[in-house]
């Protein structure tokens, strides 16, 4: 039941996108997002669609997983589409009562919807093909320059990766505690709001105790291995660009040029 929750929704298959350096993917996602905001012409969207379709194809992640993230923004999508549809001034096509639908409105609404959907799907590709740990590694390396201004980049990345590492552990623990209490007749589903909140106590107390215990154990284990922060620390698997990453950057450059081109020329 609770085991089905996936955070950091990594989908484990082997594909070119999975093997790319996380920095490349971070950069590519950023390029894609920026390009969506540059787009204001039908041709721009054609280029973006081709790029996105190719990426989906290359990731070898089944399409249903890609669009699952869209569920979260259905509401946002509906609001923004209807606002754009009804509140844009311009050449009227038809109207119902006080709601006017204009040619410009239809165009804006369609573009807005496509933009939002592509935004979510585009970033899903990154999270589906990159493990959370690779992602934090990539972020740490990419934001390394912030160390110059005394931002503790390594420590923040370490906190992030520990937190991510603990999510599945705590989810599993919650599952076990729930089962142990259900075996004693606990009921987490029925009852009103207050009843439900009360029924959480037998779940939360053991969970908190275990989380604190795990945190102390981990701190102890890190100290036993002489962890002292990021200074002079090397990595077991240092991030290194491969030829395919260079190829990917070239593709991003061509894509960005095409997007800018459609905006300027067409």
């Amino acid at each position: 039941m609770i085991r089905d929750i996936t955070i950091g929704q990594y989908y484990p298959v082997d594909s070119v996108l999975h093997r790319l350096d996380p920095r490349t993917k971070l950069f590519g996602t950023m390029v894609f997002i920026v390009s969506l905001f540059l787009a204001d012409h039908i041709w721009s969207y054609v280029v973006a669609t081709v790029f996105l379709a190719a990426a989906i194809r290359m990731s070898r992640v089944p399409l249903p997983f890609m669009v699952r993230g869209l569920k979260a923004i259905v509401f946002l999508l509906l609001i923004s589409v209807s606002f754009n549809l009804f509140l844009t001034d311009g050449e009227e096509i038809f109207h119902i009562w006080i709601l006017r639908v204009t040619k410009e409105g239809v165009r804006m609404a369609a573009f807005m919807a496509v933009r939002l959907i592509y935004l979510v799907v585009g970033s899903s590709i990154m999270t589906l093909t990159t493990t959370p740990n690779q992602l934090t590694d990539g972020l740490e390396k990419s934001l390394g320059f912030l160390k110059k201004v005394k931002v503790p980049v390594h420590e923040i990345a370490m906190i992030m990766s520990i937190a991510l590492r603990f999510i599945p552990i705590l989810v599993e623990e919650t599952d076990k505690i729930m089962k142990a209490q259900m075996a004693r007749g606990a009921d987490f589903e029925s009852g009103g709001l207050i009843q439900k909140a009360k029924s959480m106590v037998p779940l939360l107390v053991p969970l908190f105790i275990s989380a604190f215990r795990r945190a102390t154990d981990l701190a102890m284990a890190m100290e036993a291995r002489c962890y002292h922060g990021g200074e002079g620390r090397t990595k077991m698997k240092p991030l290194r660009y491969a030829p395919r990453d260079r190829a990917a950057y070239a593709v991003f450059a061509v894509y960005l040029a095409a997007m800018v081109g459609t905006r300027v020329l067409v």
Partner: peptide, 30 residues
Amino acid sequence: RSKVGLVFQYPEHQLFEVDVISDVCYGPRN
């Protein structure tokens, strides 16, 4: 579940009350 009692491996997964007796009361109260 009251007829087929299951005790899990780690007691830490089920103990939560302030004292032993109230913790044992949890099952029958449910």
